[in-house]
């Protein structure tokens, strides 16, 4: 009995000492990545990146879905955790840039130290395959101009990039439509059932339903990658999107707290660079319809410049949300 007690005590002491000894070489335990939305195809892309990072770090990397407040909840949770490099924020543009811009968050992208970007995905404006009221984007916009408030479109909640990008374009063209807000798979179901007219979808949604859709335009100023959504760009018709480069598309950048020690950040960066440069990883991401972002171009050094540029571009676009809501309200009254 006493011997058993002694053994157990020694064992527990050893276990306590263990971490102290091992603390020399980061990482010594699993790393957590906080994904700011609910489970979805986008989540899988982050899981691919997590797996790649895990291979290089030698420790498991778990991607935890922490939805809430458009991604702000995940960001704030990361900021509340220790700055020891074991918690990474999967910084999508919505919580990283858009939320601070719209005043929904008290932090900014500068409060984080960047690792590398993961992937980007462009959105597309799609209508039903057998739509007869218009043939292409100019035709669609003409119909909207002649029938203000008649078109119903779906682009998610107000302060998401998906909505921002379409509303910016519509305001530029001076046309008004009604937005119906969805948060889950019922959106695609209702689109297929023709409950509403057009939708702003991402590549995952396009891939699985392309036989029922016609792409009016890919909402970007860069042509789509091979596995992305095929279709004309607004500028092909001389229509201005109002946003260029990364500002028009969804993207994510993995970041840690800004007061994380540099040597820890160095380890994470090196591992992530290797992971994201791996052709296997890139292929997996491409299959989902996303564009893996080159770690050479989207490096930690370029983070600040890119985020600031996008912030500037989106600042004008944000005003379009208010404009559209006012226009629609005026029509409905």
């Amino acid at each position: 009995m006493k011997r058993l007690l002694a053994i157990l005590t020694l064992a527990s002491l050893a276990l306590c000492a263990g971490p102290a000894l091992a603390a020399q070489k980061f990482p010594t335990r699993p790393v957590q990545v906080l994904f700011p939305f609910g489970p979805s195809v986008t989540y899988s892309v982050s899981q691919v990146a997590g797996e790649a990072l895990s291979q290089e770090l030698g420790q498991p990397v778990s991607v935890t879905s922490t939805p809430g407040a458009g991604g702000v909840k995940a960001a704030l949770t990361v900021m509340n955790k220790a700055a020891d490099g074991y918690t990474i924020f999967d910084g999508y543009v919505a919580p990283l840039v858009l939320a601070p811009l719209s005043g929904n968050a008290k932090y900014s992208h500068k409060d984080f130290k960047p690792l590398y970007a993961v992937a980007s995905n462009a959105f597309a404006l799609v209508c039903h395959k057998d739509e007869t009221r218009w043939d292409d984007l100019p035709g669609f916009l003409k119909y909207m101009k002649e029938n203000p408030g008649k078109i119903v479109y779906s682009s998610g909640q107000d302060f998401t990039l998906r909505n921002l990008v379409i509303v910016a374009m519509l305001k530029n063209e001076g046309v008004v439509g009604r937005k119906v807000t969805y948060q889950d798979a019922t959106e695609m179901k209702d689109f297929l059932a023709k409950e509403f007219d057009v939708m702003v979808c991402n590549s995952g949604q396009y891939k699985t339903n392309k036989d029922s859709m016609r792409v009016l335009a890919v909402l970007s100023d860069q042509p789509s990658p091979e596995d992305g959504i095929p279709g004309p760009l607004p500028k092909d018709y001389g229509i201005s999107l109002g946003l260029s480069g990364l500002a028009a598309v969804g993207w994510n950048w993995w970041v840690v707290r800004s007061d994380t020690p540099d040597d820890v950040v160095q380890v994470l960066r090196e591992a992530m660079y290797r992971g994201m440069s791996n052709p296997e990883t890139r292929k997996k991401i491409e299959f989902m319809g996303f564009s893996p972002l080159s770690p050479d171009t989207y490096s930690p050094e370029s983070y600040d410049r890119i985020c600031s540029d996008i912030t500037d571009q989106l600042t004008d676009a944000v005003g379009a949300i208010e404009w559209m809501n006012e226009q629609v309200a005026r029509l409905g009254m």
Binding site: G38, P39, Q47, A185, N209, M288
Partner: peptide, 28 residues
């Protein structure tokens, strides 16, 4: 709906959908 329309019936079905896609299968 998950298999036929790529519309997950529940949150867990959404996860399974994502895994299926990770393997290169396209539901629908």
């Amino acid at each position: 709906p998950t298999l036929t329309l790529a519309l997950p019936g529940t949150a867990i079905a959404a996860l399974m959908l994502a895994v299926l896609m990770l393997f290169g299968f396209l539901p629908g």
